[in-house]
Amino acid sequence: MIEAVRDAMDVAMGRDENVVVFGEDVGYFGGVFRCTQGLQEKYGSDRCFDSPINEGGIIGAAIGMAVYGMRPCVEIQFADYMYPGYDQLTQEAARIRYRSNGDFTVPMTVRMPTGGGIFGGQTHSQSPEALFAHVCGLKTVIPSNPVDAKGLLIASIEDEDPVIFMEPKRLYNGPFDGHHDRPVTPWKNHELGDVPEGYYKTPLGNAAVRREGREVTILTYGTMVHVALAATAETGVDAEVIDLRTILPLDFEAIEKSVRKTGRCVIVNEATKTCGFAAELMSIVMEGCFYHLEAPVTRVTGWDTPYPHSQEWEYFPGPARVGEALRNAMEAA
């Protein structure tokens, strides 16, 4: 998926000279996850460059550039590092169009690796997507595979509004189904690892059905898509797995259509539970599908603790916990 992300930026930079890429270590070195490798060499050091370690500055500079008329695509090295830039994102980037009546706009993309699974501990494993989805004026995208990552990132860069692009870092090197004790499978063996060349866009706001099913709907995104698929296979429950792809804008139609069909719903995300995006999804299902439900809607999430280090796999909502939730959903009523 690293190559897909890099390819997206390459394509976007090649098509539009207003696209610039910067962030900590992204220039000469090409980023700590190598997502920007080669871009400085290809496009020059004024289109792809290293920034000071100052997330508020990175996002503030990107806002200024976007206001000028460019399309910055900046990297926050880990989602956990975004907090110093949160003021610039929430009170500035998100509201400049609104408060200026469209006089100024911020077509900017902020990329950041998200989620755990790499023994990153509490400062390299967080999933703060709810903190972005809560902010009106931002869009939040979380791909689950390389084909989507490229199409969604190009769409994000070309979007007229600020987009938070969260890259599940455990998926960088292959689809991860939560079985941490098994060998890593690379993307090359996966149908969604075969990234088309050149330009294409995956529209923001369209969910994808990763597995059709009749018995229960799983609403999920990012790494958890693969965990949900594994749990479905292992339990034999005929679940419909919906990959939301963007949590804002959200594909209400896909959610409601599926839950009304199955009558059961399990929501899976890696982030902490309280006020997480799973809570929002539950509300949406209750508001839109209550009279179609045959079982309580449940959620499987990370625990409400800081992301621990050595207890990573007790924290991570893996296929066993998702499978249990599926069985409970089927046994209720």
Partner: peptide
Amino acid sequence: TISGNLATQFMQAVGWAMASAI
């Protein structure tokens, strides 16, 4: 556009100027 938030615009001005230079 004035924010009412304090100081955020100071950094944004630098970003705008960087864009002009780029």
